[in-house]
Simulated assay, not measured.
Amino acid sequence: MPSDARLLMVDKAAVEAVLQPDQVMTAVREAFVLHSKREGRVFPVVREALSTGGIFGIKSGDVASQGLLGFKAAGFWPSNRQVGGEPHQATIMLIDPATGRPTCIIDGNAITTVRTGAAGALGLQNLARQDSTRVCVFGSGVQASIQLEFALRVLPALSEVGYVTPQRTRDDAFEARFQDRCKLVCATDPDAAVAASDVVITATPGGGALFDAQAVKPGTHLNCVGADTRGKRELPPGLLARARLFVDDREQATQIGETQWAPTTHCDELGDVFTGHITVNRKPDDITIFDMTGLALQDLTVARLIHERASATGLGASIAWPW
């Protein structure tokens, strides 16, 4: 009854206690499949600059057959660093589609981080050469770290990592996290690092091209994370035309992803690989790119997982929410 309604609130610590990489990959893969079959809807993205210097966005969608409805309010506030805070902020709300009432509010930062890492892993599993041994990572922050974590999980042959920071200097925390799992080198020449790699991962704020297009050798796969807003880019001009391009959502990628810089480039949606609508048939010299802008359905399927696990284990705080 309305008077008995309750709202579950799941904070960061509870989310991190529940998240398991394999389960997140399963949930994210389901989101790709739902999108490919058009059984899940992705609503238009809101992504706007604020007078405070932050960027605010909303990603939302639903899966009618599962009674799944919700949104993620998120963005980037660089000034948070000045007070020791995380610049990326995200909150997810699940809503009862029958009544419009919220059922669960979840700290979205950890979900965003891990679901993006899982999406990158699915891209690597299906698009990269499985004998890849060397990876170049642009960035050494939260997203660069999770992308490398998942890359090492799904590409067992990876053993050498060249990482590039904005200052071209070592990141001790990044190296400590991975030092027992691979050989790490802080690269000072981005073009040389790209040319020496089988896989390239770009996970930066998207302030401009990170390397020269000619540095990308045949057979390379690129996972591109940082372009998620109009005007952002990480890839150099001309590279998309040389590659086979995959996206999570075609329309979204042409609006806010790398694909915005060459919107007429043919691209395939990764979910169509999972449903068999397309096949990759990768040739040894193919250059492949996965332009990752993030699907609302990924947030929702992972949030549903959190909601179910938290409810079953007593994590989170359940409060009265009568109407």
Rank of each mutant, 00 (worst) to 15 (best):
R170E: 15
G276L: 11
L94E: 09
A144L: 03
F290A: 10
G271M: 13
V33N: 11
K232W: 03
I106M: 13
G162E: 11
E175K: 05
E48D: 15
D22E: 14
L222A: 10
V15D: 08
G75K: 01
W323A: 07
G257I: 01
F246M: 13
Q20P: 00
A90D: 14
T103N: 09
G85W: 10
A192K: 07
G75L: 14
E160M: 02
T26W: 00
Q252Y: 04
L240A: 11
G84H: 07
A317R: 06
Q167E: 13
V42L: 15
G206V: 05
V10H: 07
C186E: 13
P78L: 02
P102F: 02
P102E: 10
L34Q: 05
G207E: 14
D4C: 05
R41I: 11
G226L: 07
H266S: 15
T229V: 09
R230W: 00
P97M: 06
A193W: 08
T165R: 12
G276W: 10
V199W: 00
K183S: 12
I105W: 06
S197T: 11
G276Q: 12
R244K: 07
P263D: 01
R170N: 13
F71Y: 05
V280M: 06
V18W: 02
R47F: 00
T301I: 02
R115N: 05
D285W: 03
V46R: 15
V302R: 15
F174I: 06
A5M: 04
R244E: 04
W77L: 08
R129F: 00
G316S: 11
A209D: 11
Q147S: 03
T220L: 15
P97T: 04
A110T: 04
V199S: 04
L297T: 10
S159M: 01
R134K: 12
T279H: 08
Q125A: 03
I92F: 00
V273P: 01
V83D: 05
G231S: 09
P156G: 08
A296E: 13
K72A: 04
Q89D: 10
Q143M: 09
Q252P: 13
V28A: 14
S51Q: 15
D268P: 00
L148A: 06
A17E: 12
P78S: 04
Q260P: 14
A119N: 13
A64F: 03
G85Q: 15
T116E: 02
E48K: 15
A196I: 07
T103F: 01
E48T: 12
